[in-house]
Design a protein around this nucleic acid. Sequence first.
DNA 1: AAATCGGGCAACCGCGCGCAG
DNA 2: CCTGCGCGCGGTTGCCCGATT
Length: 307
Amino acid sequence: MGRPPCCDKANVKKGPWTAEEDAKLLAYTSNHGTGNWTSVPQRAGLKRCGKSCRLRYTNYLRPNLKHENFTQEEEELIVTLHAMLGSRWSLIANQLPGRTDNDVKNYWNTKLSKKLRQRGIDPITHRPIADLMQSIGTLAIRPPPSAAGASSSSYIPVNPAAAPGLQPLHDDVKYHAVLNHQQQQVITLLDPDAPGAAASPDHQLKWSDFLADDAAAFEAAPQVVLGQYQEAAVAGGGAAYGDTDSIAADGVGGGGEDSAASAFIDAMLDSDKKMGVDQLIADLLADPAYYYGGGSSSSTSELGWGG
DNA sequence: AAATCGGGCAACCGCGCGCAG
DNA sequence: CCTGCGCGCGGTTGCCCGATT
């Protein structure tokens, strides 16, 4: 038994919107707001599905939308957030004023993923493709990640300790130093007075522990949860979102990992608005070590997005 | 000049979640 | 607690248009 259709599809227009339709929808929303989309078509005199109206409004007609090209700063922010959040386009778009999730998604699919591939970085895992090939070869004999392993996680540059013999593409030491430093800044910003802040390596819990009881853990010590999430997010292989997706897909776990991520993300989004975490993200992006370990951190152009 | 190809983008579809009754 | 409904999200599709042959 499927869900009934939201509208009479036989009598609904589909396809590109005309200027007249746009005008009607805009006039209606400016006068009545955007609640109850199912009734909007009838009230606005449109032969469209309410869902289509909502999409048209949010992706095109909504005030303050940017219609110009993405800037280099926006590109870099998308890449970083995608590495942390996966394909949660709405969350990523929240960090980009004037951009919609559809914009970000399309831009990623058509431009950014290709750019990453061209630079030898897998756009799904955000790890060097060479590293992935190596991982495939050694997957069967790799031990499961331990707490210690997680705390020294490798992300884009492979951690030599985790894969001895593999040539690191970047300056891993510098990269990890930068990343850890940025994480600590974020954590401190969120709750500088919290006892046992994640700054203490001995206190770091395993991400899997957090997942088992994420809601309570987050309320009790969000700064620790943040540290864990970031550790998990940067742990090699895109475990941060790949695992949650698989959990969600097979319906096992009652959304444990997913809710863990969501709880953290929601809190993060609330907090960053208040505390300027955006700037920290920008600082992280501004450091070339993020993708190309070593070198100075003077210019984002060193990331090589320009051409 | 015409045909074909490929990229980019707008829009659609189906699903999950939250909420109200 | 259950059910129906609306909303939002992510994945996918299909059209348009410029580039190439």
